[in-house]
């Protein structure tokens, strides 16, 4: 199997380059990450992040044949050769396929991704009705792999100001939570031409999400709530 992998070490290389690799294996039911680890055994200078290798930790997000995804849950047999691997687009490269996600996490933190409830702590858990709990489905499953935000042109152009699809999905996760008490502040925080309204609903985020989530729909619901409280 043929691979073409982005190589860049900012400390020694003047510019990035693509390096060809070959593996004498049968794809079978192997995942892309298995192949990358075989390549790394061949060339230990190849840098890549991975941890859980089952699509839960979100560490091995990368651009696979022009599309963001998780290497560990991408079947090798479905990929056209040579398999082109690049780091997530728009983020500073630390080395090879490893990018610096500081800006991504900064945007995530900016939406205060935790429950705010000023009531005295109850003896038992804060309960929700099954219907209220259902609102959080499709929101809480996000693993913060950054596939969506780094496939979003608006995030490429304004990563310092636009929260991005991952951050906005999480923002809605807390806006939608009936146990949270600062909904108005959360909406205030997002009512901004850059933070929320850079989203032009092109849905790249929905297209690439490895967990099948829909940030565009969550962003639409935030806009709907803003309309509802204004008119």
């Amino acid at each position: 199997m043929r691979f073409s992998i982005y190589r860049y070490n900012p400390e020694t290389d003047a510019s990035p380059h693509m390096q060809d690799y070959e593996l004498d294996i049968d794809a079978g039911d192997m995942m892309l990450l298995d192949a990358i680890l075989l390549l790394k055994a061949q060339d230990e200078s190849l840098s890549v992040r991975r941890s859980c290798r089952e699509g839960v930790c979100g560490s091995d997000a990368m651009n696979i044949n022009g599309r963001n995804g998780l290497a560990c849950i991408t079947p090798l047999s479905e990929l056209a050769q040579p398999i082109e691997l690049r780091p997530l687009p728009g983020m500073p490269v630390i080395r090879d396929l490893v990018v610096d996600l500081s800006q991504f996490y900064k945007q995530y933190r900016s939406i205060k991704p935790y429950l705010v409830n000023n009531e005295p702590e109850p003896e038992i858990e804060r309960l929700q009705s099954p219907e209220d709990r259902k609102e959080l489905d499709g929101l809480y499953e996000c693993i913060l792999c950054a596939c969506c935000s780094t496939s979003c042109p608006s995030f490429w152009w304004n990563p310092d100001k636009f929260v991005g699809p991952a951050g906005l999905l999480q923002a809605y996760r807390f806006i939608a939570d009936t146990r949270d008490q600062v909904t108005a502040e959360r909406l205030d925080n997002l009512e901004d031409p850059y933070r929320l309204f850079r989203c032009h609903s092109i849905m790249n985020c929905v297209d690439v999400c490895p967990k099948g989530l829909n940030p565009t729909s969550a962003i639409g619901k935030i806009k709907e709530m803003l309309v509802k409280r204004t008119i």
Partner: peptide, 15 residues
């Protein structure tokens, strides 16, 4: 410094 928080955008989006 990076500044955001203009608190508009909804009206234009709706318009």
């Amino acid at each position: 410094r990076i500044v955001t928080g203009a608190h508009y955008g909804l009206r234009d989006w709706l318009m």
